[in-house]
Computed example of a mutant assay.
Amino acid sequence: MTTVKLCASTILTAFADVQSELVGKAVVLTDGKAGTVESVWLDELHGLRISIRGHVGKWPISTIKMQQGRENAGPV
């Protein structure tokens, strides 16, 4: 496998792992917004972003303060 294909495969695998870990889980963001993760996006300018059911917009994954099943999620 070429280096480019290996890098792309690694990124897509990590993205799929994050999607399966977060979609459908309750989270609290550092700004106090809370809800269930509806979707995860890979944004070339901002990295991973999430949307939360009931809130308009997308937030960086780094703003997750707490995640369902984890007391202190910290950076994901």
Rank of each mutant, 00 (worst) to 15 (best):
A34H: 11
V4N: 15
T13Y: 12
V56A: 09
V76Y: 10
T30A: 06
T13P: 14
P60N: 14
E38Y: 00
K33W: 00
V76R: 14
C7F: 11
T30I: 08
R49Y: 10
V4I: 15
A16R: 13
R70V: 11
A26R: 15
M1V: 14
A73L: 06
V56R: 13
C7N: 15
K33L: 10
G54H: 09
P75A: 11
R70S: 13
C7H: 15
L42V: 00
F15D: 03
G24N: 09
A26N: 12
E38P: 02
L12W: 03
G54K: 04
V4K: 15
S9E: 09
A26I: 03
T36W: 07
E21W: 00
R70E: 03
V76W: 07
I11A: 12
G74K: 01
H46N: 07
H46G: 08
R70Y: 04
M66Y: 12
R70F: 03
Q68F: 02
V23I: 08
G24A: 04
E44W: 10
D43P: 07
I61E: 08
G47H: 08
V76S: 14
S51M: 05
N72Y: 14
Q19N: 13
L48R: 08
V40M: 05
A14D: 12
G24E: 03
G54T: 02
G32R: 05
K58E: 06
Q67N: 13
K33G: 03
P60F: 07
G54I: 01
S20R: 11
T63F: 04
S20Y: 01
D17Q: 12
R49W: 04
I64P: 01
V18I: 13
S9Q: 05
G57C: 03
I61V: 09
V27T: 06
P75K: 05
A16T: 09
